[in-house]
Amino acid sequence: MRLSVVDLGLVAPGGDEKQALADSVRFAAHVERLGFHRIWFAEHHANAMGASHHPELLIAAVGARTSRIRVGSGAVLMNHYSPFKVAEMFKQLEAMFPGRVDLGMGRATAGPVIDLALQRDRENPAHADHLQQVAETVLWLHGGFPDDHPFAGPRLMASVPEVPQTWLLGSSPGGSDLAAGLGIGYTFAGFINPQSAAPALRAYRERFRPRGFGLSGPRAILGVNVTVAETEHEAERLVGSAKAYYARLRRGRFDTLVPSADEAARELTPSERDEPTSIAAGRWPRFIAGDPDQVRATLERMAAESGADEIMIQNMIAEPADRHRSHELLATAFGLRTAGP
């Protein structure tokens, strides 16, 4: 089973966004050496927690410093952008790093202020049609507009035959129908909506129809939040940072960093601290934590229940050294091939 990573540009306790971006570039080289298949970068605007605001910039920086790992977006928020702009941007990235670029597309609000700030026309802000945005982007990339369409003429970088892989990212079952109908890859954010993940991924596989956009059959990724340490106890301590971050959001602290594990231990209530980190009574957890054998068993069960071809790891381990070590332990548990020193 393939393992991949989505990176948030996490700002370490006591650090800043400049350090976080440098950490992201180093982290990408690290997971490439460990044998992870791809690394995607998030899009979060005006968010103190992470420095990955525009994934295209990190894709370019990391693509230039790596040689094998696929690089992509997890995700470009299509409700804010022109499909032509997104398609042309990722076609150029594909030209720079042939055979290695993924365009992951999604949608999300950044809050009313930032949503408005991202609009060109503030007096008449657009209400994006998600299906149209995604479909139009795919058609630009593949030159798929019908002859009588106004966009049928121009071709994006016609001298470059390579096309980035296209993926739809979602956290609700509805997205599976869109990805299946367009015949593109589908990624489900199980760390947001764990109980809907397996049904959505199974539905995508059942309904997938090839459309000539690069896939002859379904390709499904399950995104999960994973923390691995040498012991179960240490993993539970480290995953407290993620639990405490979301607890802060529930309490209205939206402009907050991810706390250190020690801060988290002081903040969490007993019920928050004891939230399950493995499958319990058939219910998937939001956060997976444990020693390498425990985590591998959980991920293998999730892949079997959902039919996922690949697992994409997200986490909020506060300290970069602990985050690097978590991925080392996971790579070893799954027998990934380490490339080079």
Rank of each mutant, 00 (worst) to 15 (best):
R325F: 04
T332M: 03
A61N: 05
L222P: 02
L156R: 07
V160D: 02
R68Q: 14
S216Q: 13
V134E: 05
H327K: 06
A229Q: 05
G50L: 05
V31R: 00
S216F: 02
L57S: 11
S67I: 08
I114C: 02
L116R: 13
A95G: 08
G340Q: 09
R266S: 12
L21V: 10
A247F: 02
W284D: 14
P270N: 11
P218W: 02
T298M: 06
K91W: 01
G214F: 04
P83G: 06
G181V: 07
D293P: 00
R26E: 15
V224N: 01
F84N: 08
S196F: 06
L3K: 00
G282V: 12
R207V: 11
V31C: 02
N225M: 13
D102H: 07
Q294P: 00
V113W: 12
T256G: 10
E234Y: 08
P270W: 09
F145G: 05
S73C: 09
E263N: 10
G170T: 06
D7L: 04
V86L: 09
E319F: 12
L257H: 10
I221S: 08
A152M: 06
D274W: 04
E236C: 09
I69Y: 06
M49N: 00
E56R: 08
F191L: 11
G72M: 06
T137P: 02
G143F: 07
A235L: 00
A303N: 02
S326Y: 00
P292E: 06
